[in-house]
Structures are given as C-alpha cells and as structure tokens.
Amino acid sequence: MSDMPVSNRVRKVVKESEEVRTIFLEDNVPGAIPGQFVMVWLPGVDEKPYALSYMDGEAAVTVQRRGKFTDEIFKLKKGDYIGVGGPYGNGFDVDVCKRPCIIAGGIGIAPLAPLAEKLARKKPIIIMGAATKEKLIFRERMEKVCKVEHTTDDGSCGRKCFASDILEEVIEKCRVDVVYGCGPEMMLKRVFEICRKNRVECQLSLERYMHCGLGVCGSCAVDGYRVCVDGPVFSSKQLSRMSEFGRFARLKYGKKVGLSEYYAWRE
C-alpha cells in the first residue's frame, strides 16, 4: 500500500480559455470514476488536488489560473515531468438516477464533463453557467453529449442569469430525479435548497484546502466529514447534516472563516 505522487509526463496542453488549461497526462490514472480527483505535484513548488476532467485512457485535469501554483501549471509543456497521486475520493454515484440534471458553475464543469459523458444514455440535461461566453469551457464537448442550457452573468451566451436561477424550471420541465453539481459553494448551497424544496436528490462536489488527501490530517473537514475521503461528492442527506456547508471553511493553518474570506484567500 503506497500513496504518493507517481511520476508522469505531460502529453499535451489544451487552451480552453484565456484562464483555463487542460493538462493531458502520458500515463493513465487507472480505475478512476467521474468526481474523483488526483493530487498534482510540481516538484519544488507545491501539490494540490484537481478533479479529473478526462478519464478512460486519457487522464487529464483542467485548471483555472488562480495563483503561484497555477502560474507554474500554465508553464507546463509536452514531455514535462509531474507527480500525480490518486485517484482519490468517492466520485459521483451514477446508478441512483433515471433523469439526471448536471449543473456547473464556471470551472465546476471539470468533474461534471466526464460524468455527463458517462450518463449520456440517460439523456442528462446540463446547465452550464459562467461569467461570460469565453469562460463557458467544454461547451462543444457537452453539446455533443446532450441538451445544454447556458447561462452567463453578462448575457453573452444563453440566458443572462446564474445557473441556479433556472434549475427549478429545468427540474419541473424535465422531471429530473437527481441533480449533480459542482461550482462555487454559494451556488451549491442554492442548488441544495432548490433540490430540497422540490424533493429531488442531489450530489454535490465540495472543495476545501487539502493537505494529505488520505483522510488523516483533517485540514479539509466540513463538520465531521473529510472532503478528501468521505467526499468530495456528498449526498443531500449528508449535506443536510453539515452546519459549515455554504457558510464556513478553513484556511491553510486551520482557522475557520466565512466562505467569502476563504474564497478571497483562494484567489
């Protein structure tokens, strides 16, 4: 039993938008399912968790530029060595749904795109939201799979609103039974509440600062749940038991702060 970054190489880098790159890996991450993540290690820089945005023979992570670490990721080119540990976490449960809806906010589409492909036969409805049309990544990839509703903050593509603003309408119109979501936590909180009101199951992927990824250190705690091992995907039932969901997160040194302070630090 061994869990640490395994040497891998960059196979290719795809520019998804000005601020987003997909890094394809030379070696696959065997056994991964949608919603699971890997720890990406840049020797001498840092190591951080990223959802797999491609799997089944062509593992990749899709990264949004945020700070020092992602600046270094943006410098990667074909053939560069990186360390990859995992897959980690539980992933989405795809057996529970008959009529799934997938809702993504911004880069939250990363773990949901392979999920949409896996669920293609169940004809999922995808709601993709972003600030602008340019930031709606994987648009063509998703349109190949199924019906897509777009929303943008500025109205440059689809409807001018947040993704969660049209969720209730989609749930009713399409008789959705399970909602899968990933995105900013304030959006996820709204998704959770809409699902509860409409008595629809949801599975939402959360994010927290993470040290070990192995379930031992506690840095990614949300109440009594560990995002790295118990999650990152949580069910309606689990989310309803969390007092910190949508409200609090911990900084690197363990201080509990409001979500807005947490997101300001992450930027």
């Binding site: 720890m39 290690w41 840092d46 360390g83 540990g85 040290h211 070990c212 031992v216 250190c217 040194y253």
Partner: peptide, 23 residues
C-alpha cells in the same frame, strides 16, 4: 505548516511533515 506534499504512504508506513499548522 509546511507546503504540500506533506503526507505520504510508502510500503510499510507513512511519512509526514505537516509542520504543526495551528490558528
């Protein structure tokens, strides 16, 4: 505390340098 990687598992044990992070 220290930067990642901070916790690893090898064949016979774990090795960590989390570095006492504390608020």
């Amino acid at each position: 505390g220290h930067r990642n990687p901070t916790v690893l598992a090898y064949e016979w044990g774990m090795i960590n340098a989390v570095g006492l992070p504390s608020p």
